[in-house]
Simulated scan of single mutants.
Amino acid sequence: MKAGYVIRDQERPHFITITVVDWIDIFTRKNYREIISNCFRFCIKNKGMILYGYVIMSNHIHLIVQSRDGKLSDLIRDFKKFTANQILAALHNEPESRREWILERFAKATETHTRNKNFQVWQYGNHAEEIFSLKFMWNKLNYIHLNPVRSGIVEKAIHYIDSSARNYADEKGVLDITLAENPVTDTRKNSEFWKYNSYED
């Protein structure tokens, strides 16, 4: 892992990317996305997670997160471990047309190391970037919320259910998150986010 992507200050918010091994598009299925959302809810309520923004794409997750307990690395580790176990359980027990292929890829990912004995769901590393200012926070929030727009999935970020874009547009989101202060509230309409999410024609 590159030195620049290590979580050094455990108390600061960070932009985190969590990626499925081999970029497998497992989150095209609703049940796997719900595993992620439910784990977010649990961590916010019980594990001291402060979630400022997120998006669940087909094969990766972006989030801006902070730990109330100053143990961000432990929080991300536990999040990845729990969701991996839940995804594997769903793969084994729920209908899945691609079960054998996905499990084969998850099993193959363990061949180069001994950390996971049977299956590996997440790539190692989190590409962590420390949030050092409100401006940088909003740069990353815009990047997160516009992911589905850039991918051609939706025309406006608020149309994508599995992200925090709705929360920042004063609508009800799937998750209750902590809203970041906007450093340019007097010129919000000029920001990239609001350009794509304005209700004006």
Rank of each mutant, 00 (worst) to 15 (best):
M1A: 05
A3W: 06
A3L: 10
G4N: 10
Y5R: 12
R12I: 02
R12S: 09
H14Y: 15
H14V: 01
I16D: 07
T17E: 08
T17D: 07
T17I: 08
V21L: 04
V21F: 04
D22Y: 09
D22W: 02
T28E: 15
T28S: 15
K30A: 14
K30R: 13
E34W: 09
N38C: 03
F40V: 03
C43Y: 14
C43I: 05
C43T: 11
C43F: 15
I44G: 00
K45R: 14
K47N: 03
I50N: 01
L51I: 04
Y52D: 03
Y52A: 02
G53K: 06
G53N: 09
Y54W: 02
Y54H: 00
V55L: 04
I61M: 09
H62L: 02
L63F: 02
I64C: 00
Q66Y: 02
Q66E: 13
D69F: 10
G70H: 03
K71P: 03
D74F: 01
L75Y: 05
I76M: 00
D78S: 04
F79D: 01
K81E: 08
F82R: 13
F82N: 11
T83A: 01
T83I: 05
A89M: 09
H92E: 14
N93I: 04
E94L: 15
E94G: 08
E94Y: 12
P95K: 10
P95T: 09
S97R: 14
R99P: 11
I102R: 08
I102H: 07
L103D: 06
E104D: 11
K108H: 14
T110D: 09
T110C: 13
T110Y: 06
T110K: 08
T114E: 12
T114W: 13
N116G: 02
K117G: 01
K117Q: 15
N118F: 08
Y124S: 12
N126E: 09
A128G: 02
E129G: 02
F132H: 11
F132N: 15
S133N: 01
L134Y: 05
F136R: 06
W138I: 01
N139F: 12
H145W: 04
L146Y: 00
L146P: 01
V149W: 04
R150Y: 13
R150K: 15
S151I: 12
E155C: 09
K156Y: 04
A157Y: 06
H159G: 11
I161H: 08
D162W: 15
Y168H: 03
E171M: 05
K172I: 09
L175I: 12
D176R: 11
I177S: 01
I177R: 01
L179R: 11
E181T: 03
T185F: 08
D186F: 10
T187D: 04
R188T: 11
N190I: 10
S191L: 03
F193I: 09
Y196D: 04
